[in-house]
């Protein structure tokens, strides 16, 4: 009988535990946080809705770990932004009731502006690179799917994505020093 994806992932988790932890320590620059993320990963493994079939369980596990790590990093980023908003407000001596709300609007505005800037930036990208990027990032297509749909090789998909990311990041360098 075939293992369920969950059983198979759990087996891989146990086998790859050391490698996963080593990756997380490097990624998070901190062993304690990395161990927390390992714990989160295990909980997620036992609870999350998993696809019916996982072709690459090791890759899937590392991807899950990387996403959880990113969640941590992004949460810290948000806390940092909120702290800044909080202290700005305190400096201006605004009423207490604004303290809790303003940072939310800040989050919303920043995310919205960034997404809009990113989309605007994509307009000046070559059409093929843009299509590959949109298919993979916005629509979640795998590299193989993108390659099939665009009738190009998987390697070319990677090249287009690399170009798109470089293009976006150059835009970021120009105008987001403040964020």
């Amino acid at each position: 009988m075939l293992d369920s994806p969950r059983d198979s992932l759990t087996a891989h988790y146990l086998k790859q535990r050391a490698a996963l932890l080593r990756f997380l320590v490097a990624r998070m620059r901190n062993r304690d946080i990395a161990e927390d993320v390992m714990q989160d990963l295990y909980i997620k493994l036992t609870k999350a809705n998993l696809p019916e079939q996982i072709d690459n369980p090791s890759g899937f596990l590392f991807r899950m770990a990387a996403n959880l790590a990113l969640d941590h990093i992004r949460k810290n980023e948000r806390v940092r932004l909120r702290d800044r908003a909080w202290s700005d407000l305190n400096r201006e001596k605004l009423g207490n009731e604004y303290l809790a709300d303003a940072p939310h609007a800040d989050d919303a505005l920043i995310a919205k502006q960034r997404l809009a800037a990113l989309k605007a930036r994509l307009q000046s990208l070559s059409p093929k690179s843009r299509e590959a990027f949109e298919r993979h990032k916005f629509r979640g297509q795998s590299y193989k799917q993108v390659a099939q749909d665009m009738n190009i090789s998987v390697g070319t998909v990677g090249k287009h994505l690399g170009k798109a990311i470089k293009h976006i990041m150059e835009a970021n360098l120009e105008n987001t020093h403040d964020i």
């Binding site: 991807r63 990387a66 590299y143 994505l161």
Partner: peptide, 9 residues
């Protein structure tokens, strides 16, 4: 490289 569904351990 890591965004590929083929990326392994």
């Amino acid at each position: 490289r890591l965004g590929s569904e083929q990326a392994g351990a």
